[in-house]
Write a protein that binds this DNA or RNA. Structure first.
Lengths: 223, 223
DNA sequence: TTGACAAAGTAGCAAAAGTATACTATCATA
DNA sequence: TATGATAGTATACTTTTGCTACTTTGTCAA
């Protein structure tokens, strides 16, 4: 049997197939807390419950593209930091039918977000992760995202995805403290990230204390 | 519309669906190298090429169960360390049709493996990861597994999954060195893992030098 | 104009962790 | 009984981390 014969003969409809969705947890830091974008469901199943924005994977798009599409349709944002989290495949996770969900998380600075509209709203991520009243297994997805972020903060630069292009060190430190869930020492923090940043000649103003210098992220050195 | 009406009305066949497979990279340390179990493909596509053992996901099983099934059918082993890696969904990754692959990796000590039979064989993982001649995107899956292992060695106990229940410290250190790709200092290594192990009163014998004490992994302390 | 307040930013020490080297111990073998 | 080989230990040195105290520079109110 040649390969072309085989391809002709293979009938993919011979096998039952699960549906595949991509669900994306969009995180930001707001009001001194890590928050996640949730959607109040208008339809069954889990009508009225909170869920993550998700889409069915199109037959011609990659998973990353599906994740970007889900985010764009809810926020209008493109080119934000996005990464695959985990794939959930329990047969009972959707009461309608077998649905496998590839989950993603995304990070965006609060300043670049328009206030969420319609059924979308930001919720404290820790509350969602701890709640027993979230649609599907989306509570676990959020918990998984929180954990991933907390790990990666220590050995990557993902925290920079949560601040604007120009930022002060007190701002950045606050992001780290919220993600890690603990206070950091100012002097040590600055030593640690000194090599990752470039000072600008801009300063904050107006506050009743010494102005804070603004910095940018230093581009990664290849190799 | 009530929920039951909705469920009746929903026809899952209205949407085209990708197929979903689970592909599992089984790693072990053999001949002083990290090796991975590969299958010489008997059928199209990629006939004659090496691929990872994989199965289509059954409609009633979880993804973890599918991964365990794939491993069991090739090795006869159960209850080995297994963890999800990443999900691959490029539309072109399988020439037959749209197939989304949820990849897993597994770790097993060499001693518990029977010699592979039939089309199965162990290959140096680094060579597979670097090769351009592997079926599907399985070369990238192996590369992803190597990277994950290398990361997790430092902050988890996955290295213990690659040695027998009783092991010597020189053995364990060799595993660490192979996974990390670098020599470690004996004294420092022992300080680091001292709290993770329990000494037994067994010793190696027969070698023309001082016998080596055997240890077991200390059970994780809850909390 | 100036003193109080507040947060930004800096200096430096001590403890802990990591890096590296030198040493002693114990077997098989010749 | 000396030798070679690897197991195992002691210890000095270096870097990082944890912590405290200090100086700087703005607003605001007396």
């Amino acid at each position: 049997m040649t390969e072309s014969e085989f391809l002709r003969r293979y009938r993919s409809s011979d096998y039952p197939k699960p549906s595949v969705t991509v669900d994306t947890a969009l995180f930001t830091v707001r009001d001194n807390a890590l928050q996640v974008l949730m959607i109040r469901r208008q339809e069954h199943p889990f009508q009225g419950k909170l869920s993550l924005p998700g889409v069915f994977v199109g037959m011609a798009e990659t998973l990353d593209e599906a994740a970007a599409r889900a985010l764009y349709s809810k926020t209008g944002l493109r080119d934000i930091y996005t990464e695959q989290l985990y794939t959930w495949g329990s047969p009972e996770r959707d009461p309608r039918m077998r649905v496998i969900s590839v989950s993603y998380y995304a990070l965006v600075p609060e300043q670049s977000l328009a206030p969420p509209e319609g059924p979308a709203l930001f919720c404290p991520a820790a509350e969602i992760a701890a709640s027993g009243d979230i649609a599907f297994d989306h509570s676990r997805i959020v918990a998984c995202g929180i954990e991933r972020i907390r790990n990666k903060v220590n050995y990557t630069d993902i925290a920079f995805s949560l601040v604007d292009e120009e930022f002060t060190l007190p701002e950045l430190q606050r992001i780290y403290e919220i993600l890690l869930g603990q206070k950091l020492y100012k002097a040590n923090f600055r030593k640690k990230i000194a090599e990752k940043i470039i000072p600008t000649d801009h300063y904050t103003s107006g506050a009743p204390h010494r102005p804070s210098r603004m910095y940018r992220k230093r581009p990664e050195t290849a190799g």
